[in-house]
Design a protein around this nucleic acid. Structure first.
Length: 302
DNA sequence: AGCGGTCAAGTTGAT
DNA sequence: ATCAACTTGACCGCT
């Protein structure tokens, strides 16, 4: 059975995640900043609990957690350890409770660190900050039981072979908590499924198959062939991404996401899979509700 | 309450 | 050179 996944935020449901900026925090005394951060973290834990509850109650099988769930966590100056927060223990306990709730409700939790996390950059400082960010994601993932921390393969830097070799070497040096959750995703600029399958086979890192990116940046593999090859990289429930183009499949830029998903964009060969499909659509929970109805009309089990 | 300026970070390709 | 895109606009300070 397919599990439809919601990404990060809600369109209508009044569940909101808070954040702040490094600049703001650095303009106040450190203790005041830590107190403020602690409040935001605890609020975000409450919002996550609400998000899990909403998903459980509305047939949404997974939820992607925003990378700012602990705001500004790895900033070089404004960043912090959870133990530095005046309410650090309460924060940790609240997130562990989210994990328990998600486990009971069978809501899968995932992360998708942002575009600045690049394991294959030739610049050591970029890799170092990426490692710090991945460690942070893994820390929260352990609290809440998230089994996926998904990133793109990074840049090409003029040499695809060498950049992928750097990626493999970077994976080999990762701490276990990151390594065990890490996944790669094909993107719409640089790295296709055909590029990444060898890397995933060599490292054991599963491949998140984004069929929208694959349609925007093809590699000769059919969707059916890519799906089959990608499934073999997973040692747990596979994860896919899908979206529909805002501008349609005609002449314009197909990459920006539509508010809703056209059910025709969901590959027919996914129909009988046991997998999670994250729905990347601007209308969020409304898009999932509409899609689930349309798929059921077509005989899909979601 | 509403609005404009601002926000930590990398890389790519279209204009 | 600038900008949008990328998983996601939200926050702050002003009127």
């Amino acid at each position: 059975m397919l599990r439809l996944g919601l990404c990060c935020i809600f369109a209508e449901e009044p569940i909101r995640f808070r954040t702040t900026t490094a600049k703001h925090l650095l303009g106040m005394p450190r203790q005041a900043a830590l107190a403020r951060l602690g409040e935001l973290c605890l609020e975000n834990a409450a919002a996550l609990a609400a998000a899990i509850g909403y998903c459980a109650g509305h047939g949404i099988g997974s939820f992607r957690i925003n990378s700012q769930i602990l705001p500004v966590k790895t900033h070089p100056e404004a960043g912090y350890g959870v133990d530095e927060l005046p309410n650090g223990e309460a924060v940790r306990a609240a997130f562990r409770a989210c994990g328990e709730r998600a486990r009971e409700a069978k809501v899968r939790l995932t992360f998708h660190p942002d575009q600045f996390v690049l394991l294959n950059s030739p610049r050591p400082e970029v890799v170092a900050s990426s490692l710090a960010d991945l460690a942070y994601h893994a820390e929260v993932a352990a609290w809440v039981g998230a089994d996926v921390v998904n990133i793109h393969a990074g840049g090409v830097y003029g040499d695809k072979v060498e950049s992928l070799a750097r990626l493999v070497r970077a994976v080999e040096g990762l701490p276990a908590g990151v390594r065990s959750r890490l996944t790669f995703e094909n993107d719409d600029r640089s790295f296709t499924p055909l590029d990444l399958l060898p890397v995933c086979r060599a490292t054991g890192v599963p491949l998140v198959y984004d069929v929208h990116h694959h349609r925007c940046l093809g590699d000769g593999l059919s969707i059916e062939a890519a799906t089959a090859a990608v499934l073999a990289t997973w040692d747990r429930e596979p994860l896919f991404h899908v979206s529909s183009p805002k501008a349609g499949w005609g002449s314009g830029d197909a990459r920006p996401h539509h508010d809703f998903l056209d059910p025709a964009d969901l590959p027919e060969c996914w129909r009988e899979l046991d997998a999670t499909v994250e729905i990347e659509a601007k209308a969020k929970e409304l898009a999932i509700r509409r899609l689930a109805g349309e798929l059921r009309e077509r005989g899909w089990r979601v």
